[in-house]
């Protein structure tokens, strides 16, 4: 991926900014250009909540090059407090700690993958809520 392509997605990666259809209210993450539900092009920025529950997960043992340092890692579906579901890595957990329904919150982490010239990718992951 080009550095600029990565840069364009910074708000969604850093702050979980998706968008919402002004006509029908449907929320999208990642943000969309057109609402697939009603066809409207009037979409407004929408900040997703940063907390949610883990709905389903899998443990990844075979991953693309560069991710060896992360394996085994967890990919899960997180249902956020407003009901929107996102796909994300669950971090700071041992495989055996992961439970469905566990409370998680967004955290910015770096990907093992680097862009041209060593540019570092930062993105949201979710980790257990720290009480």
């Amino acid at each position: 991926m080009a550095t600029s392509a990565y840069w364009r997605t910074r708000f969604q990666r850093y702050r979980l900014i998706g968008n919402r259809c002004k006509e029908c209210g449907k929320v999208f993450f990642p943000p969309r250009f057109v609402c697939p539900a009603c066809g409207s092009v009037k979409l407004e920025e929408y900040k997703l909540p940063e907390r949610g529950k883990l709905v389903e997960y899998t443990v990844v043992y075979t991953a693309p090059k560069g991710y060896e340092v992360m394996t085994p890692y967890v990919i899960g579906i997180v249902e956020l407090e407003d009901g929107v579901r996102v796909l994300a890595q669950i971090t700071d957990v041992d495989v055996e700690d992961v439970k469905e329904g566990m409370e998680v919150e967004a955290s910015i982490r770096r990907l093992p993958e680097q862009l041209e010239g060593g540019m570092i990718c930062y993105t949201y992951k979710f980790r257990p809520v720290i009480k």
Binding site: M1, A5, Y6, R8, T9, Q12, R13, P30, E56, Y57, T58, V60, T62, A63, P64, K65, Y67, M70, Y73, I75, G76, I77, L87, A88, Q89, L111, E113, C121, T123, K125
Partner: peptide, 26 residues
């Protein structure tokens, strides 16, 4: 693996750390 995953929307999928295997697993 990367080629197979390239059918997904790269401006989103790439930074999730997900793989096609992981989607199939879910």
């Amino acid at each position: 693996l990367t080629a197979q995953a390239s059918v997904e929307d790269q401006e989103y999928f790439r930074y999730t750390g997900a793989t096609l295997h992981s989607l199939a697993a879910l």
